[in-house]
Design a binder for these strands. Structure first.
Lengths: 158, 158
DNA sequence: TTTTTAGTTTTGTTGTTGCAGAACTAAAAG
DNA sequence: CTTTTAGTTCTGCAACAACAAAACTAAAAA
């Protein structure tokens, strides 16, 4: 039966939505993403998204605009048609990861400021703060290196 | 003048609070963390925290309990005293990073499920989905490796 | 026993989020 | 010029989050 598989797909979309929600996106945004992932063909119009998810136009509009501003989604048009076909930007998730990393980058600076403000009556504590600071710097550097590594790996393949 | 420096420290606490807030914690929680970072000595009682931040007891209580359940803060007691001295767990931020990483680990599985559900009419799209999937797996592996590297580096020093 | 201390739990208020529904708009079609 | 299409923006609401204030509790002190 067809409905059976479709049910499965909808549940999958729902699970993607929840996963995205935990990543800081709002529910409807996560579902739109999920919808575009399972969509066959891999693009959908505004109305199709709305119909598939059964949510309001405003929810779809806001979700799509948010996703487009983050460059996770973009759209194309077909010649002679006015409507837009929305689709995932394949590199979007990857650059998303980069921006997420960048958000941690304020910590080392703050921690250094903290240590500068502290007395040196508790050198052990200060040392540990600096170590945490080093840890964050270290991880940021490492992750950027990993991203580089990935990009080179991909470049070779293609 | 003393007040001048204290003002600076309070601003620093506030900035830490904001940084933590962006990391997904609630405002009061971020400030309690900031307070414990700049605290000299590096521990404070419930009342001291409340007094320093000028927030309610319930806010302090909830913040501390949340931080303790995440193992970012713990407390000690002094012999003969009932009150608890709250302090940062130095490894707390680091294990916090680990849990954050773990949250991404559902993605590869979901993406694989998506591809299995899709037709193969759009092999390019499917290939790209699998590539994103690989990317997340790759990054998770890399980060765990980095964490290992850090721990070994630290082990050597001490 | 009562009182104090060190918090916890409950209650209520305020502000914010996330969305639906309806009104609106701009461009194209008729 | 009117109508349709493809969305956007506005209005309003229900649910939830973050917190203050106050009531409560459990253990120790007096």
């Amino acid at each position: 039966m067809k409905t059976d598989k479709e049910q499965n797909v909808k549940e999958l979309v729902e699970r993607i939505g929840v996963a995205m929600e935990m990543g800081g996106l709002q529910p409807a945004v996560g579902r739109v993403l999920g919808c575009l992932m399972v969509s066959d063909p891999p693009y959908k119009t505004f109305d199709e998204i709305q119909g598939y998810l059964g949510i309001s136009k405003s929810a779809v509009s806001n979700a799509l605009n948010g996703l487009m501003s983050r460059e996770i989604v973009d759209y194309m048009t077909l010649p002679g048609e006015r409507k837009r076909y929305f689709q995932l930007v394949q590199t979007g998730m990857i650059s998303q990861m980069k921006t997420k990393l960048a958000r941690h980058s304020a910590m080392p600076e703050l921690l250094r400021a903290v240590v500068q403000v502290r007395s040196n009556k508790y050198p052990e504590f200060n040392k540990n703060l600096l170590e945490i600071c080093d840890f964050f710097s270290f991880m940021e550097k490492e992750m950027l290196a990993s991203l580089d590594k990935w990009e080179k790996l991909k470049a070779k393949k293609s």
